[in-house]
């Protein structure tokens, strides 16, 4: 297995980095290029940029900042937000993004996954799944970028993860919604069951609050990476300290 990945997620709104709690109440968290460089220099393995305004506003994500990031960054990065068709995915890749992440549009029209994978390869197609614990399992939520529009997709998380992989997705980012921003730890059982259900990489997202949370999700599930936002933005956890701690716990890290 390659080293486990530490992935800061940066929410972008109007060209600035923002962070909300449980997908609401966004506040400013800095300049996009400053933050990208900071995380690259601290040893982040990959970055995710999510244009949180794109989907609710019915537009594709802003290519201007994608190009600026591609020019200065020498680690992989994924972009997300409002990518609704093959051509908007192509535009992001042409602007220099390594991967594109799709969420609600893939739920609306699952064929989209295969269309992008066929032309550009599975390795650039990430499916974001907003997963909510419900009685008897987990359900996929749709349109979570806007609290008013959020609704059930009518799918279970396990079924959707399997379908996305079968259609050509190359990676899944599993956002455990009830954990997002509350720093109580990843939903390890859920990450494990999704990672075991598919044979593509699964990235855990939602709930990181302490070094031990990263350790536990890596030791107790086969997650390929762990994504976090607020603990990094608020400097509660420094990435060099985190990676050194995880390496000492026997988890392979790129140091």
């Amino acid at each position: 297995m390659p080293s486990r990945r530490i992935i800061p997620c940066l929410d972008v709104k109007d060209g600035r980095i923002v962070k909300g709690v449980r997908f609401r109440d966004h506040r400013d968290a800095g300049d996009i290029i400053d933050q990208a460089l900071r995380y690259r220099n601290e040893g982040a393995d990959e970055l995710v940029f999510y244009d949180i305004g794109a989907s609710p506003e019915g537009r594709s994500l802003d290519l201007e900042w994608v190009g600026r990031i591609a020019r200065i960054i020498d680690i992989p990065f994924t972009v997300a937000g409002g990518i609704r068709n093959r051509d908007s995915a192509a535009a992001c890749l042409d602007a220099g993004a390594d991967k594109i992440s799709i969420n609600s549009p893939a739920l609306e029209r699952p064929e989209l996954i295969g269309e992008i994978a066929r032309d550009f390869g599975s390795q650039c197609v990430v499916i974001g799944i907003d997963s909510m614990a419900v009685e008897g399992g987990h359900a996929v939520k749709q349109y979570t970028g806007s609290p008013d529009a959020a609704r059930d997709s009518g799918r279970t998380t396990l079924d959707w993860a399997r379908e996305a992989a079968a259609r050509g997705a190359g990676e899944i980012v599993l956002n455990c919604m009830l954990r997002d921003g509350v720093r109580q730890g990843y939903d390890i059982n859920h990450v494990r069951e999704v990672a075991e259900a598919v044979d593509i990489p699964v990235i855990a997202s939602g709930g990181a609050g302490a070094l031990e949370h990263f350790r536990d999700v890596f030791l107790l599930s086969s997650a390929s990476g762990a994504l976090a936002a607020s603990v990094f933005h608020d400097r509660l956890i420094a990435i060099p300290d985190l990676k050194e701690f995880l390496a000492k716990c026997g988890i392979e890290m790129r140091l």
Partner: peptide
Amino acid sequence: ESSKGRPVPHMGWSR
């Protein structure tokens, strides 16, 4: 070939 703990695509940083 994928196997447990070794998903495909091979995605990430390897030594």
